[in-house]
Simulated assay, not measured.
Amino acid sequence: IRRKAFAHRDTFTSLEEAQAYLTEIIMRLNSRKHYKKNQTHHELMLEERAARQVSADIIPFDASELFEFRVDKYSTITYRQNRYSVPEGHVGEWVKVKASAEKILIFSDNACIATHKRSWQIHQWIMDIYHYLRTFEKKKGALAQSECLSQAPTKIKKLYKDYYIGNERDFLELLIYLKEHNNLEKIIVAVEQLEKNPMVQISTDKIIFLANQCEHIHKTVHSKNEVTTQSLENLSAITALFETKKTGVLH
């Protein structure tokens, strides 16, 4: 496989591109007919899999390394000269790390507490902003220039840049809500809905309120019509009744 794939091409811009190329080569090879049988390798594989299912389960091959590391004072573990963040509350504890070619999984008491995309560089800090929310609650002024925010998802960084610069306290409230509900897309939809009404001052309370309402609407309404549109406009008007004065950042 290595010769048939990478003897023809061995330069790629990313690991993902190399994986896609390898998959294409494998699919091409498996579509050829076996030299002794009038069937493709893919068809023979399906037959073998069906025959094995009646006798034993097929367990996927897992190429990973297993280690045990102590969480340092920065709430990170160091694996191959890179630091990966661990949720607060585990400093000084020993955790198990499962490292594959793509992911770093961190376990404590047999529960996965953190998942990171593996970095193949060196001396990198791979941080998850949700792992440090309690620290930022005590040091709100450190959030703006933090490595955690710079590595946060693009949509979260855009929310901060557009609506929360200088108002880190409300931004942290939104992050805590996102961590608990894992509904970033609903938050984005709520913000877009609030932007349609220029009379409404966008704040965390309004975003969360409308996100919860949107969730209820999506569960009960199956098609967009005039009633739905008018209901959303009414919700936007209701949110305008909330306090619209911004609260300054507390450092």
Rank of each mutant, 00 (worst) to 15 (best):
Y163S: 06
A101Q: 09
R83V: 02
T247S: 11
N234V: 13
S223G: 07
I126D: 09
Y35F: 15
I207W: 00
V200M: 06
Q124L: 04
R52F: 05
D72H: 08
Q193P: 00
R70H: 05
L175R: 08
R80L: 06
C148M: 03
F209M: 13
Y132E: 03
R32A: 06
K98D: 07
D128L: 12
A111N: 11
R83C: 01
E93F: 09
H251R: 13
S236N: 14
L149W: 05
Y74M: 10
F67Q: 13
I188N: 06
E17R: 08
D162M: 12
E48V: 07
V95M: 10
V86D: 00
N183G: 01
A144Y: 01
A211T: 00
Q124V: 07
T244D: 14
K33N: 12
D109E: 15
V249L: 09
D170A: 06
M199A: 14
A237V: 05
S108D: 04
S31H: 11
I165D: 03
K139R: 15
K139L: 08
L22V: 08
V86T: 05
Q39V: 04
R3H: 10
N212H: 12
T228N: 05
K117H: 12
S146R: 13
N30P: 01
L250Q: 12
K206S: 04
A237L: 10
L241C: 12
N38E: 13
I77P: 01
Q124P: 02
L143Y: 00
E137S: 14
T78M: 12
F61P: 01
K206Q: 04
R169L: 07
E233R: 15
H41S: 04
D10P: 03
S203C: 12
K4H: 13
K219R: 15
V227C: 01
D10C: 14
E233W: 06
A152V: 04
E24S: 12
K206V: 02
Q121P: 00
W125V: 07
Q19K: 15
L44M: 15
A144V: 09
E24I: 02
L149Y: 04
R49W: 00
V86C: 00
Q19V: 09
I126G: 06
T220S: 08
S100M: 03
L232H: 04
V249W: 01
N82W: 02
